[in-house]
Design a binder for these strands. Structure first.
Length: 411
DNA sequence: TCTGGGGTCCTAGGACCC
DNA sequence: TCTGGGGTCCTAGGACCC
């Protein structure tokens, strides 16, 4: 007599992923506070190029940059658990982190390497369970419900097998939470970190959930957390017993109702196993704030380069988009965006640059700014985009509309 | 000591169309 | 002269996430 399978969703999160990948290559840094961050890998980062010829474990520790030697606008991408002891966390400004632990070892991010390891660990998971939702470079949801053995011990055995297989192949550890849904699995994967597994059964849900602060929930960020706080709602227990109508009044019908549901651990969202990109963008923060007129040449070259990189991304991945936009960030961290939708899809750097240039003209650039970005939206796979554009061309011109070639209402 | 880069989704107002 | 209603597209900004 077998009972029907219950829903068992796993969330797998790699432990201190970027830093762990770096430690594979620089084992002599193991056990020391290490942070990954700053700007992309640049020549001379380690001070002495000859060191690169040595096997990693023979590179002397003096060869590595220390956090206090960094000056600039970067943030910490990942900190090892040793560095976290000092209070350093991801997304923290580098200058602040340097105050907390000046002697931490600093390594530049190497995203290509992380992507390669990302592909590897995901391929291993797929070998055990095919239903996977990609949540970025270092985490995934996995549906255990219908996998043979996926229900045993609440999913523990399968989680253990996946965790071991990833370690055997890559030398990297991960943490896994298995629970009745994505919301709870995401929370549970944190509870035995690092290199842990947490199995959450349906009957334990409210006991584990309600003591947590609201902001632990994926989808409740700093703004919502603060607003809830001002309503006297701090923990999920408070949220669960808050007046549903009051939540809807404060946060709107969709989000307010969602808040109330998740406080009871309810989450029916399915895994999203295939996704096509919506937008592609490139942006850069300058070393110092720039001015449109005073730094015209530098900005112009930068702008062209951003357009070329977006175009190259689109071409490499086989997409084209109809909406081109720009983003500016001012020193006070406020930002302005402008976008124009054109009458055909493009993946061409010159077209992107031309339209993005039109967008830029519509922003007040009398002030200096710290960031410039270029984005292409409304993406379609190239072939579909071409078919759609060809069809649109055959339509009578009344059906066509372009912000660049506005027709007058009485024309 | 000011805060990277790449994304997704939602909202709200206005234009436009029938 | 005081004026609909629904649907879709476009734009700007914001919250949030990894």
């Amino acid at each position: 007599m077998t009972s029907p399978p219950i829903r068992r969703i796993a969330h797998l999160d790699m432990d201190a992923f970027f830093a762990s990948v770096e430690l594979l290559r620089q084992p002599q840094l193991k056990g020391l506070p290490v942070v990954v961050g700053g700007r992309s890998r640049s020549a001379g980062w380690l001070g002495n190029a000859k060191l690169e010829a040595l096997p990693p474990e023979q590179i002397p520790l003096e060869a590595f940059a220390r956090l206090h030697s960094y000056t600039g606008r970067g943030v910490i991408t990942t900190a090892t658990y040793e560095a976290r002891q000092f209070g350093i966390g991801s997304a923290m400004g580098m200058m602040k982190a340097a105050k907390l632990c000046p002697d931490a070892y600093l390594l530049p991010a190497d995203f290509e390497q992380y992507r390669a390891y990302s592909r590897r660990f995901k391929a291993i998971i797929a070998h055990y369970a095919p239903e996977i939702e990609d949540r970025g470079v270092d985490e995934v949801y996995i549906d255990f419900s219908d996998v043979p053995g996926g229900q045993d011990e609440g999913g523990y055995l399968l989680a253990k097998r996946i965790q071991q297989a990833i370690f055997d192949d890559t030398g990297l550890t991960c943490s896994i939470g298995v629970a009745p849904n994505k919301l709870l699995a995401k929370l549970a994967s944190e509870w035995h970190k690092p290199n842990g597994i947490f199995i959450l059964m349906p009957e334990q849900v409210t006991d584990r959930l309600w003591p947590l602060p609201c902001k632990k929930v994926n989808g409740i960020g700093p703004k919502t957390s603060e607003k809830l706080d001002s309503m006297g709602i701090r923990h999920l227990h408070d949220l669960a017993h808050a007046d549903a109508q009051a939540l809807i009044d404060a946060f709107g019908p969709a989000y307010g109702a969602w808040l109330h549901r998740i406080a009871w651990g309810h989450d029916e969202r399915p895994l999203v196993t295939d996704s096509t990109p919506v937008s592609m963008s490139r942006e850069t923060t300058f070393e110092r704030d720039l001015h449109a007129r005073a730094d015209k040449a530098e900005l112009s070259a930068l702008f062209t380069h951003l357009c070329e990189r977006v175009a190259a991304d689109l071409q490499r991945k086989g997409y084209a988009g109809r909406t081109v936009g720009v983003k500016i960030r001012f020193p006070d961290f406020r930002s302005a965006t402008r976008a124009i939708t054109i009458d055909h899809h493009t993946q061409d750097a010159a077209v992107i640059r031309q339209v993005a240039g039109q967008c830029l003209k519509r922003i007040d650039l009398t002030r200096r700014f710290r960031l410039l970005g270029v984005k292409v939206d409304n993406l379609l796979p190239l072939e579909q985009a071409q078919q759609m554009d060809a069809k649109a061309q055959q339509q009578p011109k009344a059906a066509q509309y372009s912000a660049l070639q506005l027709s007058l209402p009485f024309e």
